[in-house]
Amino acid sequence: MKAIEIKNLHYTYPDGTTALRGVNLDVERGGSICLIGPNGSGKSTLLLHLNGILQPQRGHVRVLGMNLRKKTKEVRSKVGLVFQNPDDQMFMPTVFEDVAFGPVNMGLSEWEVKRKVKKVLKAVGLERFENRSSHHLSYGEKKRVAIATVLSMEPEILVLDEPTLALDPWLKKEFMKLLKELKRTHTMVMAGHDLDLMKLCDRTYLFNDGKIVKEVGKKSELFK
């Protein structure tokens, strides 16, 4: 069983913009892939299909063998989607409530929720941040909390949109370390235009104009 199977996926937004024009992609369980492409090439649209926020208009998407359309709830608990801007990801007043939001919606007991939040915050290096107000965090801390909010649902697949965007070189180094750590335990899909992401992934695909153009091995191949 593959982690993600996408066949001939098309998507056009209601305003007529065609974002995806026949995407084919397979991701093995435990694998990690990176989609590199320019702004507006449809990467984010593709990522929104991976947990059923957008439903395929043509073609199909299967996640862990499950059909998106039928098992949206299960898929959402298996696929953790981390957005570009952490301020979109964090909408509760305190860090605790934000990280707890997923587990609470999954119906876990109060005790279990607490334990999870603690564990996950430790994993992203933010121990004892539970009672901090979300708007008092630094950008780097917000990025980490954004990942924690998703990790607390214990997803099998992590999907990250522009994970290193707007991080300074020092924060980025730290953050890449965290991603590397997470890669060991999760199937990962990343999208962005930061070529350093290629180092983290098993496979890299060049994405342009709503399609996967080719698989690339080295940075230099990108510009041929």
Binding site: K73, R76, L81, F91
Partner: peptide
Amino acid sequence: ERVYTAMRSRGFN
């Protein structure tokens, strides 16, 4: 809209 997407991704119904 984006926040609502994030909420739905985390099981909000």
